[in-house]
Simulated scan of single mutants.
Amino acid sequence: MNTILTINSKELRLNRFPPSNDKNLQAWDSSDEYVINYLVEQQLQPSKILIINDTFGTLACALSEHELYWQTDSRVAQCAVEQNLSDNFLYPSIEYLDSLTTPSVTPDVVLLKLPKSNALLAQQLQQINQVMGPNTQVIGFAKAKDVHTSGLKLFEKYIGTTTTSLAKKKSRLIFSTPTAQKLTNDDQQLIEWPLENTDYTIANHAGVFANSKLDIGARLMLENLPSNLDDGYAIDLGCGNGVLGLMLADKNPQATIRFTDESFMAIASAKLNCDNAFGSTERFEFDWHDCLSDYDYDQADLIICNPPFHQLKTVTDHIAWQMFNDAYRTLKHGGKLRIVGNRHLGYHIKLQRIFDNCTTIASNSKFVILEATKA
């Protein structure tokens, strides 16, 4: 459902992606409005703007007259900005950057929406440190409740002298002046930990879910992975660091495994982990993608999934619905979808509705493993 934002002398029709019929959800928040209005009020006329973590493309649309360098970890966010620019007939000079690519230019202004973790914030600030000039204006923005001293210290460490604005509509801006020493390299920081009951070590980039330990839902799933795939084709949907697909490959050495996730850092982590575990990624495929949209019909023998039940900070089930519907389309007849989820989410109801069957494979006090077969 399109909603209208009037800002920077523009009337923008903006939509979340994937589209939602929930009238309470919109494609921007008050911190987006705050930072855009600040640029207008200060009459700043930057040539090159680096925009980081623009969740649905609101900033790209509002600032489309500038030369934009637009960086995200999220394939869904990139789909959103492309759709919203098209819907508003905007065709800016824009270069899309994934989260592990450092921009090749020195921006006049950097607009950084605070990410969900300080680990990811630190990595993004290190990238900014690599490209900022002495006159680059670095502006962070977020809901006021998400601006913490720990994050401000990271701005001080990697950028320089840092102050904050007054709060407006429960949002706040962060101003950081480039005075910090330039870093000598831009090596990406990896978090590593041993995978219990195996000889494997799992490596994660900063933005990946459960990047410091095995989450308890995945632990139950690992105990209930099939070992009868032979030379079949399987997909680890929403793969994260790839631990489920990796162990599926361990149990099925002849199978081809495809890893897909909307997080670029997740795909990079999964690829690294498979290479480290098996010395090669020859029988694996890796895809930075929005669920299984545009995948061919009837191609997979098995799909495994640990679906999210939120988008950003919004609790929602529409991503799980998309995953399950995409899985049904992508599976061969007789193919199986095996998922893990919190018991209270009621995924069995969705699977029953889509597949007309659902079997409980295993459960504990918090989680359940469910399997549905495409007839």
Rank of each mutant, 00 (worst) to 15 (best):
T314R: 09
G140N: 07
G279R: 13
T162I: 11
Q130C: 04
L25N: 04
Q124Y: 12
P178S: 08
D187F: 08
P46D: 02
A362E: 01
L39E: 00
N204C: 15
I202S: 09
T179V: 07
A277G: 11
M221H: 06
L248K: 09
I202A: 07
I128E: 01
T373L: 02
L68A: 02
C239I: 10
N15E: 07
N252M: 14
W70P: 00
V110H: 06
G217M: 11
A277W: 11
S280E: 13
T184V: 11
Q126V: 03
L195N: 05
D73P: 07
E192N: 10
S165Y: 09
T161Y: 05
I159R: 08
K374E: 00
Y295G: 00
F264E: 01
Q137A: 13
S99H: 03
S293W: 06
F209W: 05
I191H: 07
S212D: 09
R329F: 08
G242K: 14
L25K: 11
F355E: 00
I354P: 03
K169E: 01
F286M: 04
T136E: 02
G151A: 11
V81C: 03
T359A: 01
S20N: 05
L112T: 07
Q188S: 06
Q322I: 13
G151D: 02
F56S: 09
L121F: 12
A119M: 05
E196N: 10
G334F: 10
Q311M: 10
K10Y: 03
R353S: 11
N185C: 07
Q127A: 07
F141P: 01
D230T: 14
G334T: 08
N8A: 12
F367V: 00
A327W: 08
L237G: 02
H344V: 11
A218G: 14
N84L: 11
Q352N: 14
D187R: 13
D236I: 14
I191Q: 03
T314I: 15
I191A: 03
K116F: 06
Y34A: 03
T58L: 05
C61N: 10
Q127K: 12
I52F: 09
W70L: 09
